[in-house]
């Protein structure tokens, strides 16, 4: 079963299409990186998933329950962080969590203290729990939001840019926390614009670009799908390129002292043998898998800049 599933999920604001026919599938027990540049529709998609915004078209389900009808029963099992932290400025961190606990119809009032203390300890905020929220630094606010997201036992966490505003140490801690929660069986949908974050903690990835989900698979599959590249270093690159083309390599390109091409399942030793046989002087030969960044640039046609 998929923990998050959507079909043709679409949201228009006036003329602008913010989310365009998105078919998400987040398998249970995975850490799913929801990757895309700023403004690509990630946050609106998350608001749609949580029922904060009504879709223009399409449908979706969380933990198998159709939304928004099933919200009352399913959202207590979902922890959320949407577009940054939001708390009452004149309440302490602890009182803000108590407030969220008080409005939860599924929370046992007898366990409030234990839950709040555990959540604060989990994010390292115990010492600052009594301070007013408005005195918190951005990093502390982000931690409090994570404490709120994990206040009760959750089966699914939907976290929008959870490491935003954290220093490197805080970023490491939050990633370790997410990894630990995932090990316990919690499914995590994590939006981010940082490729490195996806590579470090995600097992699956979906790529948003201008409101569309342009790719979705496990990270391993995505890596495998990218054809390894060969690079032949030679003083006769044109001739080398001709041989590569004859062998059937894809996307053959000529550089100053080298020729490159996609291997497409061909054995690299055969390429070397043919080059030598045809009298092309081979000074160097390398096979390299493209890194994920190249894959994403090829998917989105651009780097990770802001979508217009």
């Amino acid at each position: 079963m998929n923990a998050v599933e959507s079909h043709g999920l679409t949201k228009r604001f006036g003329r602008q299409v913010a989310v365009d026919a998105v078919d998400l599938a987040v398998p249970q027990g995975t850490v799913y990186g929801f990757l895309g540049p700023n403004g690509s529709g990630k946050t609106t998609t998350i608001r749609l998933l949580l029922g904060l915004v009504r879709p223009t078209a399409g449908r979706h389900a969380l933990l198998g329950a159709p939304m928004p009808g099933g919200a009352g029963a399913v959202l207590p099992r979902v922890g959320t962080l949407v577009e940054g932290p939001g708390f009452h400025p004149y309440l302490s961190g602890r009182d803000n969590l108590r407030r969220l606990d008080a409005v939860d119809r599924y929370a046992d009032p007898a366990g409030t203290r234990r839950r709040v203390d555990a959540a604060l300890a989990r994010v390292g905020l115990s010492a600052a729990a009594g301070k007013h929220y408005r005195a918190y630094s951005l990093g502390m606010r982000q931690r409090l939001a994570l404490a709120a997201a994990t206040l009760s036992p959750r089966e699914l966490l939907i976290l929008d840019e959870p490491t935003n505003g954290l220093d490197p140490q805080g970023t490491r801690e939050v990633r370790a926390l997410i990894a630990a929660l995932a090990r316990e069986g919690t499914t995590v949908l994590l939006s981010t614009h940082l490729l490195s974050e996806v590579e470090q903690i995600c097992s699956h990835v979906g790529v948003m670009h201008r409101g569309r989900l342009v790719a979705q698979s496990s990270l391993a599959q995505l890596r495998a799908s990218a054809a390894p590249q060969v690079r032949v270093e030679t003083d006769r690159p044109t001739e080398a390129a001709r041989v590569l083309r004859e062998l059937g390599l894809s996307g053959v390109a000529v550089q100053a002292e080298a020729a490159t091409g996609g291997l497409d399942g061909l054995a690299p030793e055969k390429v070397v043998a043919t080059l030598v046989h045809d009298g092309v002087p081979v000074r160097g030969f390398a096979v390299a898998a493209p890194d994920l960044e190249d894959v994403f640039v090829s998917l989105t046609g651009e780097g990770f800049d802001v979508s217009g």
Binding site: G29, A73, V103
Partner: peptide, 24 residues
């Protein structure tokens, strides 16, 4: 591991209407 995770977390029952929200 997934079975264990589910078994460890039975769905919490909805509680009777209370005045906690209003008091908050």
């Amino acid at each position: 591991a997934a079975d264990l995770a589910v078994a460890a977390r039975p769905p919490r029952p909805a509680r009777a209407p209370s005045t906690r929200f209003l008091r908050s």
